[in-house]
């Protein structure tokens, strides 16, 4: 059994903090775009337009069938060329970061789409009928009647998914991006203190995620009537 030596952690805190910022940036972007694009996908799936519903279903099922590791690698391979082809330049920022952001946003939206679809379906059909009877067009019915109620029902699930997403960002390790975990691994590798850094990273993730899930739980108690 080896002696622990935690001395490399204090000096590495700035690097680890930078990593945490990247982790949070990916998480936030993926949540935001995931919910927006996921709503679009969910509505497309529920719409009467068959080709549209098929497309959305194919998208969602494809992304849900493939491991996140593969999706991240796929996008690392594709995004740089796409950016150059479609937007000309784009060399102005970190390609790994952009490809990770795109991969996570598109991947997560498939999961959010399913949560949102279930949420929309949880709204009683009578509500839609009532809105139509009042003469509301489809988009108004969705925006004013169905979605607000659906989102309220979904809040706990959406937040839980956000916690999972926060943990999943550690997988950007496979493209060498220095998120919180990547930074911890690099410091551990550099100082020959991988054991300590891995345990430290695990503890930090645990405290943050456990804290967040306690909050979600509180929220759930408050809103469930």
């Amino acid at each position: 059994m080896e002696e622990f030596d935690w001395t490399s952690i204090p000096g590495a805190l700035p690097i680890l903090a930078d990593g945490m910022l990247i982790t949070l940036e990916i998480t936030a972007t993926a949540i935001l775009i995931g919910i927006l694009w996921g709503t679009v996908l969910a509505l497309a799936r529920l719409s009467g337009n068959r080709p549209l519903a098929w497309l959305a279903a194919a998208y969602v099922n494809l992304f849900r069938a493939v491991p996140l590791v593969m999706v991240i690698l796929w996008f690392y391979l594709i995004v740089p060329t796409l950016l150059q082809r479609w937007f000309g330049v784009s060399q102005s920022s970190d390609i790994r970061m952009i490809s990770a952001l795109v991969a996570f946003a598109l991947f997560e939206s498939a999961y959010y789409a399913e949560i949102i679809r279930a949420g929309v379906q949880s709204v009683p059909k009578g509500q839609v009928d009532a809105a139509f009877a009042l003469g509301m067009p489809y988009h108004l019915t969705m925006r004013l009647v169905v979605l607000p109620q659906a989102f309220r029902n979904m809040v706990p699930l959406l937040l839980t998914q956000a916690i999972i997403l926060f943990q999943d960002t550690s997988l950007v390790y496979v493209i060498g991006l220095a998120d919180f975990f990547g930074a911890a691994y690099k410091v551990g590798d550099r100082d020959g203190r991988l054991v300590e850094l891995l345990l430290f990273a695990g503890a930090v993730y645990f405290i943050l995620c456990f804290g967040a899930s306690l909050l979600v739980w509180q929220l759930q108690k408050k809103y469930s009537t």
């Binding site: 796409l82 000309g88 102005s92």
Partner: peptide
């Protein structure tokens, strides 16, 4: 998307000049 994706400019100097950056 894929077929479109796999074309890369062959002239690096040109690319660097256009982008104003090199990786």
């Amino acid at each position: 998307l894929l077929v479109g994706a796999v074309q890369v400019p062959a002239d690096t100097l040109e690319k660097v000049k256009d982008a104003g950056s090199i990786t």
